[in-house]
Amino acid sequence: MDFKYVEISDAAVIHDLMIRAFMEYMDAVPPSSALEETVQSISASLKEGEQGFIGYVDHRPVGMVRFLLNEKGLYFFRLSVIPEKQGQGIAKKILKSLEDYAINNGIHTLFCKVRMTVPKNIQLYSSIGFNIYEEEVVHKPNGISIKVVSMEKKLSFIE
């Protein structure tokens, strides 16, 4: 599997991968806000400093992740693997690329938020060393509340 650090010109690929992966949450209450994003909104976010990686198998994009750096560490979101490639360890490889990027840039913590209604994602992150450090209810503008957990992984540095 090969990884490419994203550029603004990759917004359409990012959008396609994300929409394909997040369609399974279309009937969730509420549906994932990922499904409301556009190529233009992703492009604008990349121009404002958002970063990401796209994973390729046989030169075809199969997954991606977006992230931001802040004082706490590397916050990632929208981890996406196209449905026909799910269950093949691609998400773990994408997360490993994030870890490598963080370590190479002196970042000590990866973190994310996960809907409590998606235990398979909580299990995925737990299986590779992430821990839940907070539970909260996110209140959406439409009046719907979503229970989420915040998860983090402390990275080890070899000095």
Rank of each mutant, 00 (worst) to 15 (best):
Ala11Cys: 10
Lys93Val: 12
Ala11Leu: 03
Gly73Lys: 00
Leu95Cys: 10
Gly106Ala: 11
Phe111Glu: 04
Ser127Gly: 12
Tyr56Pro: 07
Glu99Asn: 03
Arg78Gly: 02
Lys85Ala: 12
Leu46Lys: 12
Ser9Ala: 13
Ser150Val: 00
Glu48Val: 04
Met64Tyr: 02
Glu136Asp: 12
Pro61Gln: 06
Tyr125Ala: 00
Val149Gln: 01
Gly87Gln: 07
Glu36Leu: 14
Arg66Cys: 02
Met23Val: 09
Glu159Ile: 00
Ile128Asp: 03
Tyr133Arg: 11
Phe77Cys: 03
Ile144Gly: 03
Ser43Arg: 13
Glu99Ser: 09
Asp16Gln: 13
Asn131Trp: 00
Tyr56Gln: 09
Phe3Ser: 00
Pro61Thr: 00
Met1Ile: 15
Ile8Thr: 13
Lys140Thr: 05
Tyr125Arg: 01
Ile42Tyr: 04
Ser97Tyr: 09
Gln40Glu: 15
Ile128Val: 15
Glu99Lys: 00
Pro119Ile: 03
Ile14Phe: 04
Gln88Tyr: 10
Glu135Cys: 10
Asp100Ala: 07
Ile14His: 01
Gly63Tyr: 02
Lys147Met: 05
Ala91Asp: 07
Gly89Pro: 06
Phe77Pro: 00
Asp2Asn: 15
Lys47Gly: 11
Glu99Ala: 06
Lys140Ala: 10
Ala91Thr: 14
Gln86Ile: 07
Asn105Pro: 09
Lys154Ile: 15
Arg115Ser: 06
Ile144Phe: 02
Pro141Ala: 07
Ser41Trp: 06
Val13Asn: 05
